[in-house]
Design a protein around this nucleic acid. Sequence first.
DNA 1: TCTGGGGTCCTAGGACCC
DNA 2: TCTGGGGTCCTAGGACCC
Length: 421
Amino acid sequence: MIALVDCNNFYCSCERVFQPELAGRPLVVLSNNDGCIVARSNEVKAMGIAMGSPLFKVRDLVRRHQIVVRSSNYSLYGDMSQRVMRTLEPLSPIVEAYSIDEAFVYLDGLKVDIMEHARLLRRTVLQHTGIPVSVGIGPTKTLAKAASKLAKSDPRHEGIFSVADPAARDVALERLAVKDVWGVGPRYARMLAREGIVTARALRDADLAWVRQKMTIGGMRTVLELRGQRCFHAEMEPPPSQQIVRSRSFGRAVESLEDLEQAVAMHASRAAEKLRGQHLAAGLASVFIATNRFKSDSPQYGNSITVKPAIPTDATNTLIACTLRGLRRIYRPGYAYKKAGVMLMDLTSATDAPQSLFAELQSPQSSSLDPTLDAVNRRFGPNTLRYAAVGFEHPWAMRRQFCSPRYTTCWNELPAVKVRV
DNA sequence: TCTGGGGTCCTAGGACCC
DNA sequence: TCTGGGGTCCTAGGACCC
């Protein structure tokens, strides 16, 4: 069996650990710029305030119910998450940290009473960290997730629910809405509802070939998992990242190229830090900017461009140089920009990249306006100049660059207001 | 003028997760 | 006035090569 250990209202619970007087009081934690509600205490959930609600839309409720409002503190949550995971580790041979607030705890091979062990997990995490958790138990990850939803649905379960028993499973899955199944998002839920499938049980019993056709291979795996067949296995160490994104909305819209340059340079530098933290090098760097998509009455513009360094790199100044060149090409004056970001892609192991180049970049004698280019050209010869902004190796790649909407689409000419980044 | 078959790589778009 | 920030996977189709 697998137990999913899920921290209740995680960010709110973390805040309460350090401010116990918040216990029992309605509490929300906000996203960046204090824009949206990203965590709600049970009291707030009971008021019907939805996850992701913009704060300004629920101001009245917040005032009326004296809801306590907190900005988010991600280093605190990351630290608390680690404490929870470390607490779980001695209690199971395999603990897979799935997200900041969830872990799959494998009970296979443990000679214990499963419900008793679930109570132990719950009690120990609460004692060691102060975080309340729910535990869902099932033979597959999807069923354990389903069980944890049910554990939270009724306080009489005291935070623990099991679908280990096949006979009880039918009743349990009948009670679970199909939209609450792991792997079924809003789009699939709507499609399934049109087909008359509204419960987890109905999805489990649906025709496999039909599911495969309508929901692709992932949907098929979900159904098999609901039937008790394991398709999603434990991943002990996370696979290396395929992309690294750093982006933020601005607190206030900006118009000037200089402001955007500052933001993009900062994002590039933070993204490069993340990159080096994972010992990776980036083969492509993308930069994107966008206006405020919620302001449908003001002119909209959004664009992105992908820039290719001559060689995969993890050097901050190279990545800043690339992204700033890209930015200058997509920047259009006269718009109120609300968001900017940098994405690093085509990631490879940094040990495969020529380290000495980076050593060279560190050295203070690089002097020209673009020390990165200097270093690259000294090392690889002047032809390496097809570096950065317009750097594509083949004529057809160049053509694609100018034809592909990804690189060139500007929405400001279109009647429909649509911003893509 | 019309016409093959097999393969790879890349991208866009759509879905999902937290 | 004020609306988050990361990620992944799958599929179809286009462009290329021989």
